[in-house]
Design a protein around this nucleic acid. Structure first.
Lengths: 222, 222
DNA sequence: AAATGTGAAGTTGTTCACAGCT
DNA sequence: AGCTGTGAACAACTTCACATTT
């Protein structure tokens, strides 16, 4: 018997007819995509796994294994077509269409995130922000509307929002997450420093800046 | 033969007389530490691996294995002393002392990070910021000085800075990283969307917000 | 009875080595 | 000759099962 998780993967393969791509590979595909974009800007037409891996900071064999998850499209002796590979990875990631995102918690960090240019460049748009005190005076003007929490459910429903950025204080994070999920949000990018309890079908990615620093600190001190 | 990495771990164990703790375990220790702090605030004196694991979002056995890396201090039949365990983990992480950090790149995101309260609460202080245009008018007043890039080396040297937050545009990220490393910085928290090439002894943690969103998007679309 | 600590088993992820194209 | 694609080996990580202690 292949064990519970192995079995799950097998089952999904059968059910969807598509091989399941490991989480870590998905992360790296995003990186490859950005590297390919830069190579294309530099006028490169083809690239070897060795060269691309170098730029992406991984080993060539790992790159090839990652790509093998969803097909084979290099030419032996030559390498990969930069444009074709970009397209194929973008398809796989489903990044072709622009995704609407909301942000909850317009404090210090939240305010910076709503106006962060890095998102829009990459196919995401924060279409609205929510806060318990939407009218409070803030340091900066932003182009998105800041709405009150009571409008959240309706807004999520009407706009088909599936993803949210959560930047509220720890104390209210779980409660807000619950409301988001109830309203239909399926993915949360969580900046608050607690571990959210969510149903299995909801995906949470945590970004904890203090932990990242603590981690660095540990490894450099020796 | 145990292979290259296994051998390295063995070697470090012999050399330092201390067991090497896996990277992922270190991350989780940081999480446990925060959970323990909350439990303590709630007046808990002892906690079982089951309860703590629940709060931290891991399995009880994993928690116990993680702790086993650097000793044994639970009491069977009872659990762990919250205070003692906190102290022990903090010691292990070396978070006792306050670490000076600098930030380079006072743009949109950088400005938010310098005034982010989440850092100082957890033992880190951003003592100065650097930018190619230090005098440019910004949306917000910050308490730290904004210095020009030409002052970076000297400042790092004089203040014994070992960690830096890098939030400059992709185009200049590698060049700035090189200057930081040359000046003596050993750990970089990198917000710019490229993979930095650094010497082996320098540690880089990447935070790429666009990739986190892309990742969420992939897994929720199905 | 309740909970830890840990060897063994299981699972996932990475790297090697080389066959097979172009 | 050069480079991809991949089974097999290897290493890391997680979970199980249970002996052990309070």
């Amino acid at each position: 018997m292949p064990g519970r998780k192995g079995w799950l993967r097998f089952w999904r393969l059968k059910k969807t007819g598509r091989l399941v791509i490991p989480r870590k590979t998905i992360y790296r595909l995003s990186i490859y995509l950005r590297c390919l974009a830069r190579l294309r800007d530099n006028g490169l037409g083809t690239v070897s796994s060795e060269a691309l891996a170098q730029v992406a900071g991984v080993k060539p064999t790992q790159l090839r294994k990652d790509l093998a998850c969803f097909g084979t499209f290099g030419t032996r002796g030559l390498g990969y077509d930069v444009l074709a590979l970009s397209q194929r990875i973008a398809d796989e990631l489903g990044t072709s269409s622009l995704q609407p995102v909301i942000l909850v918690g317009v404090g210090n960090l939240g305010l910076a995130l709503v106006s962060y240019r890095g998102f829009e460049k990459e196919g995401f748009e924060i279409i609205a922000a929510f806060d318990a005190e939407p009218k409070r005076k803030r340091d900066k003007e932003i182009k998105q509307p800041i709405l009150g929490m009571e409008e959240l459910s309706q807004f999520v429903n009407e706009n088909g929002v599936k993803m949210a950025i959560l930047s509220v204080p720890a104390a209210s994070a779980q409660a807000v997450a619950n409301r988001l999920i109830e309203a239909g949000v399926m993915g949360i990018l969580n900046f608050s420093p607690i571990v959210l309890a969510v149903p299995e079908e909801v995906m949470v990615n945590n970004v904890n800046l203090a932990i990242e620093l603590e981690n660095l600190s540990y490894f450099i001190h020796g």
